[in-house]
């Protein structure tokens, strides 16, 4: 049922209607306003980088999109629906939280962790079927962890764990990926490997991606659009427009050359 509505949404609008649409969104945490008047939209297949200083409300915004935090004002539409009304449609949204704090001895293998991504569509009182097992294997292969299925999750490196969580986010019929600082804490090589993988999978599957990061170098290279927030909306545009703007310094309340270290003179996205 939910799958049909999502299929209808994507076929009827053929990428013209935004998969995510926020208009004048406000949100509170513990009675404190953390988002004010956020407005932007994300078209199908776009890689959107979400930046802002610490405490800017980036993670809260992701949680609003997932229906985990209620917005107090404005409208939020994910695949044409209010996030709090999403049920089966959640099967089309992959999510990677900022940090999964787990005991390194937690008794789960890579396969078990990726299978968790299927739990919401398996349903209560049911065991994973052949389709679920195949989807998990495909997902593990897609992220390059084939051969490590039986390895305890706590024995993987940080980069491999991130890939396992990406596989978990992708093992449904994922159309939208919400990634909250997925490369945080990774060394340069692991970060490159993760980003190459993400770009390849995004192209192969036509994913729409919201990628929260503090790493403007990464976003300058891979994002189609960047949104900058600091509690309220600051900028939305192409990486060259946003990262070269004076308004970005206002958002971060500091003097900083955001282009230093990027391909500042010839932006890859602009050819």
């Amino acid at each position: 049922m939910g799958g049909c509505r999502v299929a209808e949404f994507f076929s009827a609008h053929d990428g013209a209607k935004p998969v995510i649409d926020l208009a004048g969104v406000w949100a509170e945490l513990d009675g404190r306003t953390v988002l004010e008047d956020i407005t932007f939209s994300l078209r199908s297949g776009i890689f959107l980088g979400l930046i802002g200083p610490n405490g800017a409300g980036k993670t809260t915004l992701i949680k609003v999109l997932l229906g985990l935090v209620k917005h107090t004002r404005g409208t939020v539409k994910v695949m044409g629906m209010d996030p709090r009304e999403l049920r089966h449609e959640l099967h089309h949204i992959g999510y990677m939280p900022q940090q999964v704090l787990f005991d390194p001895y937690f008794p789960l293998s890579v396969y078990d962790v990726v299978m968790m991504g299927r739990i919401c569509c398996i349903g209560t009182l049911r065991f994973p079927g052949r389709g679920d097992r195949e989807a998990v294997r495909e997902s593990i292969e897609a992220v390059g962890l084939a051969g490590l299925e039986k390895r305890p999750i706590g024995e993987l490196s940080g980069g491999q764990q991130k890939k396992a969580f990406l596989a978990r986010a992708l093992c449904l019929e994922t159309r939208i990926l919400l990634l909250d600082e997925p490369t945080a804490g990774l060394d340069f090589e692991a970060q490159e490997s993760f980003m190459d993988l993400l770009v390849r999978l995004r192209e192969e599957r036509g994913l729409s991606v919201v990628f929260v990061s503090h790493d403007v170098n990464v976003l300058a290279r891979f994002a189609d659009e960047i949104v900058c927030i600091n509690r309220t909306m600051h900028m939305h545009g192409r990486p060259s427009e946003v990262l070269g703007s004076e308004r970005l310094k206002e958002a971060y309340r500091c003097e900083f050359d955001f282009l230093a270290g990027t391909h500042g003179e010839s932006w890859p996205k602009e050819g």
Partner: peptide
């Protein structure tokens, strides 16, 4: 069992999955 396992490992993603 599988819901308990998911929630014990990663409660936030379990909630985001609609469990």
């Amino acid at each position: 069992f599988k819901e308990l396992l998911f929630i014990s490992f990663d409660e936030e993603t379990a909630a985001a999955s609609g469990l």
